[in-house]
Structures are given as C-alpha cells and as structure tokens.
Design a protein around this nucleic acid. Structure first.
Lengths: 269, 269
DNA sequence: TTCCGAATTTGATCTGGGTCAATGCCCTTC
DNA sequence: GAAGGGCATTGACCCAGATCAAATTCGGAA
C-alpha cells in the first residue's frame, strides 16, 4: 500500500495524523538495506536509516514505529501542535518551515527544513509554533516525551538526536547573528549562500536554486519585509551576482561575491 | 586544595586550561552525595551532579574527569577556542556570555550563562566564537568530540546533554523571534522578564535583579545600541515599571506590565 | 572623603528599511 | 491560449532606532 493509495482512504488521511504503521507491512525485511527503495515501509524506513542505529533490536524498532504519526501535508497547509507538547519531526519528503507566531500578523520563521532532516518543535511557551509545508510533504511526527522515554536507554538514538539538535542550534545561532547585526543586503546574501549549501544544484558550473519558499517566507525568516527582500534581490540582479528565473529560480553567478556580501568572518583573519 | 589555593600556583592558573584533576583528590568519596559541599573536588563534582548519571562507574567517571579542563576566568577576560573544535562548557560559578564575532566591532552575544549551566560553543565556521566572563568565573571545558566519544555509549549522559541542548535551542529561537520581529521596547521587556526568571530574587514581594552585564552587553545581545537600551530603560523607569539601583540593580515593580510589553502571545488567545 | 575615568544617560540629527501605493508579471485554470 | 488573481517589483515617503555629541553619574582607588 503506497502513500498514494492510502490517500484514497479519504478522511483518515486528510490533515490528520495516522499511525505510520499502516504504511508498513514488511518493514523488517527491508530494514538496514542500503539505498532508498521505494517500498511500503518507506517513510519510517527513511527515518530509521537516519536516526535509529542499524543494530537496533526489532522489538525496539517496532516500538518507535508505533510512536510515529505520519501525515501528508499539502503545500501551504500546516500542522498545529497546540495543546500537545514538544515534538520531534522528520521530513520524509518535501520542505517545511517552522513558524513562531509572535502576535497578530507578526510571524517569525525560525528555520526551514528539507527532505531527510529531523528537528524539534518546541511545546507552546511564550509563543506558539507550527510547521507548514512549502510544497507537498510527507512527515513523521513523534511526541518528544514519548520518544525520549523509549530512547532513554538507546545511546545510539540519543547520539543522533543530539547531533541533529546541535546542528539546529548552530544554524539558529547564525540566524541570531544575522538578525542582530546584519544589514538587509547581508541577510539576503547569507540566506542565498545557506540555501546554496542545502539545496543548490550545479549546472554548467553555476549554482542553481529552486527556492520552495515565497518572498514572504524569506522576509519572515530574515526579519525584513517582502519589499526589502525584493529590492535587495533586484540589486543583486543589477550587479550581475544572480539571475532570477520566474518566481522561484535563482542562478548564482558569483558565489564568492555573495560570500563577501554576507559579511562572514574573513578567512584570512 | 581549594581553587583559591590553586590560583596561587601562578602561571599554571592564569587564563589557561588546567586539568580539573588537580582540583580533585578524593572525588569518589564525595560523588553522589546530595547537597553541594564545598570540597576539593567541587568543580567537577558540580558538573557530575548535573550531567553525569549517579550510577556511572568510577572508571568512566574518572575518564570524564580527565577530559575536563578547568579554568578560572577573571571578569572581562575571555576564553578563545580558535583552532579548537566544538566545546562543551560548564559554568561552575559566575556568569558568562557566548559572543560571536561577526566582523570588526560588530559582536553579537548569542547567549548568557549562569552558574550551573552547560552549553555548547560551536567550532569556528562562518564566525568565531568566544566565551567571556561577566564576573569572576570558574569554568570547565571539554572538547566536544572527545566528550562525545566517551559518552557515546552512556545513554544517561547523552540524555542530559540533549535536554540541555534542546533548552539552549529553545532560548535561541526565542531570541530569534525577538531580533526578527520585535521593537526595542519589546526586546528590553523580553530581556528583563527572561533575566527575572533566571536570576531574579524576591524581596518584599518585588523581584530584584542584579545584572552582571553592562549596557553594552545588553545591546549586543538584543541587536540594539547602548543608547537605545538606556533610553528604553529610562522609559520603563519613568513609567514606574522598574526602578534602577546603581548601574546593575533593577527592581521590577510590575512584572505583569513587563510581560504585556514583551509582546508575548496572549494567554487567552 | 575626594577624585578620576569609564559607564551611562540625554539630546540632536540622520538614515536604512518600513509603510503605503501602484504597477507589472507569473502561473494556474478554464 | 486568454483571463484572472495572487505574487512580486518598483516608487514615494516616513519613522524607529542608529549615529554623533555632550553632560552626568557611578564606583573604584588613593
């Protein structure tokens, strides 16, 4: 049974969670194999390959699987964990944004995530957080408390999770630096360089980006307005540093120049 | 041998690291006891109480101890990990700031830390990071790679570290929200409320803060200038929300009003 | 207790990026 | 392939907070 077929189940699928189990039939048979076969067990499988150690016992493996709630998230739709506590989310496929709602009409995008990435969604606190799909997504979500209870004696799982969290923290700190001490032009350059590293594709020696997020998303991520984002991109275009293709395509002609404009620490410092 | 005595050793102590071991003589005898006795083993002891599981074997305990580099850091002095990789730092006593150097004269304070807190210092990347003492400090530092190698099969240690990292991430995200979408007045209110939670002391029903950081530190943390910080504090004083005592004392007369000004999500939303 | 230098506060002015307002252009849908 | 609607761009103007410049005050040292 493929996700596609499952979708046909109708209401079960929708916006809501659904145990990943229904995607899974012969999981153990596939587990641990290299290469991502498109199999019924694929979503949890991919998660397991990335986060669970290869030598995990079947019993524990299935317990984790039972905790996973899979959801198919159509573009622009969002998961709201209001009421629930901290979550651990895996992006099986697609791209998402983690949005903090500061107040009416003031959203801050805390981070973007792409296929294969794991991240933590804070429980509600001073702000409420939600995860939105930048394009159609497949997502696995775990209640963090339940997940950690199960993982509490699995050093391998904790280690992977720690590494992922530390990476998120580093990215968040870099964003802090950008928002606290950089000009609009520098922020845009930082953004483009960062996206180039994460989703850039090389074509004819030039880096090509297909940005899944809108100008509003970019501005909500960088603490700017859409107008400023647009103006800065136009400036880069006028300067020949980038070319734009339609609404989402960006070609980076001069990555070095972009790095200079990003205001990073000089290498030779 | 107390830290105080050790300091008398002179050059060994200074700004440099020094194996924590020299602080330690009868560590095993004290380990696991409740209550923080001031003992020779105190620094590593405190760290162990917070991060290492109580049932850790002595062998492993001592291996961790051998990795610890203790340092006494005088106010305004800083540890520079340039060259070294990611670090795990424990603030035994005092208060520190984690500073990212964006470029000449543009520093961003990424986080403040107080006694008893553990945090990660990123390895050099697009920016270089350093840890500075807001007041005289005792600090333990571990090379992160070495620490994790040793901890890789110690689920208890990893679990604590993960919790600490997740907390840092949550704080960093809240800072992101503040820097991306809040006005100067809101940022100051957020800062004061946050400090109240971490180092506030209740006196006669009012919260009293003794801020260890200067106006420059506050401005470098909030992405503002010292002048703006000063003006916003004056405004709060004029409005009767706070009183200031000398350069570092702040009395919060109306925590609720501060919360309102912080632009947090309305509870009743 | 006085004194000095640095930290802070306060004031005046300037500006990067926000806001408001059209206009233009993708891209979807029919 | 024409049309419509939202997204993006561009322009004019404004303002929160930066910058520049004193004046004031704190708190350590003598």
């Amino acid at each position: 049974m493929r996700p596609r077929d499952v979708a046909a189940l109708g209401w079960l699928w929708r916006e809501n969670f659904l145990p990943a189990l229904i995607w899974v039939k012969e999981a153990p048979a596939y587990r641990g194999e290299g290469g991502f076969m498109i199999t019924p067990a694929e979503p949890f499988q991919r998660f397991a390959n990335r986060i669970l150690p290869a030598n995990l016992s079947d019993t524990v493996y299935f317990r984790f699987q039972a905790l996973a709630r899979a959801s198919r998230l159509a573009k622009a739709h969002s998961l709201d964990f209001a009421g629930a506590g901290q979550q651990i989310v895996f992006v099986v496929d697609g791209a998402t944004k983690l949005v903090a709602h500061a107040s009416e009409s003031r959203d801050q995008i805390v981070a973007f995530q792409f296929a294969g990435e794991v991240f933590t969604v804070p429980g509600p606190d001073n702000y409420s957080y939600s995860v939105s799909a930048l394009k159609d997504c497949d997502i696995l979500a775990f209640d963090s408390a339940e997940f950690l209870r199960l993982a509490s004696s699995e050093a391998g799982v904790l280690h992977h999770l720690l590494e992922n969290t530390t990476l998120s923290l580093r990215r968040c700190r870099e964003k802090t630096i950008a928002l606290g001490r950089k000009t609009a032009g520098e922020r845009i350059a930082v953004f483009l360089v960062g996206m180039a590293e994460r989703i850039g594709v090389e074509q004819d020696g030039r880096l090509v980006l297909e940005l899944p997020m809108s100008r509003r998303d970019i501005s909500d991520s960088l603490g700017l307005t859409i107008e400023t984002v647009s103006r800065q991109l136009s400036k880069l275009r006028d300067d020949g540093v980038i070319e734009t293709v339609g609404r989402s395509g960006v070609i980076l002609n001069a990555l070095e120049s972009l790095r200079d404009r990003a205001g990073f620490l000089r290498e030779a410092a």
